[in-house]
């Protein structure tokens, strides 16, 4: 979440103006939320170019659907929902990952303890973790990845994240648990290294 959320009252006013056709107000909403949307799309598994294209689609859909935004949820959560759907659509069009590309990721994760141990402490470890996390997330099935991204990386509540994913909370909790356990297994070398340091 690299962009601060707009003040709620100010945001409501911008939404009302945008609904009435004020493009400048909508531009301010896009400015406030595009980093968040782009970041979520990247974490759902899109590459930078795809995330850029899909982020535009998310906001264009939002513009066309503003009349249907009921303000029962936060505007950001509503955008996450559109972003989630658009990301799934884009990911669904992709060919399955090849065995060789997967093998490369596994090698990188296996090589982690040496690489992390060589660096001067936390900054290097942060960068290593960032890279390992991206690779490890790429190993998760799409639905489990989305659950971990929404709840643990984007910081949504369980209720919000379940609504974004379009499933009941009980089903979402099950996905989240499985996603976390798989991610833990993939990141285990890093986690053990951190515990030892």
């Amino acid at each position: 979440m690299s962009q601060p959320a707009a003040d709620p009252a100010e945001e409501r006013a911008l939404i009302a103006r945008a609904r009435a056709g004020d493009e400048s107000a909508f531009g301010q909403l896009v400015t406030a939320h595009s980093a968040r949307v782009f970041g979520a799309l990247r974490r759902f598994g899109l590459d930078p170019q795809e995330a850029d294209e899909v982020a535009q689609e998310v906001f264009l859909r939002a513009w066309r659907s503003l009349a249907r935004f009921e303000e029962r949820s936060r505007f950001s959560t509503w955008l996450y929902r559109i972003a989630f759907n658009e990301a799934q659509r884009r990911l669904g069009r992709r060919p399955r990952a090849t065995a060789s590309s997967r093998a490369g990721d596994e090698d990188a994760i296996a090589a982690l303890p040496d690489a992390a141990g060589a660096g001067p402490q936390s900054r290097t470890l942060d960068r290593e973790f960032e890279q390992m996390l991206e690779r490890a997330l790429g190993e998760l099935p799409t639905d489990l990845r989305a659950a971990v991204v929404l709840r643990d990386l984007e910081g949504l509540s369980t209720a919000e994240a379940a609504a974004v994913a379009g499933v009941r909370q009980s089903a979402f909790k099950s996905r989240l648990h499985r996603g976390r356990m798989q991610l833990r297994a993939l990141l285990e070398p890093y986690l053990r290294l951190e515990q030892a340091s």
Binding site: S34, G39, R43, P48, A51, D52, F59, L133, L153
Partner: peptide
Amino acid sequence: LQGAPAAKPVADVPAIV
């Protein structure tokens, strides 16, 4: 995870807007 930075590269906000 809660402290993880955004995936790089980050958004080009003016270009998206």
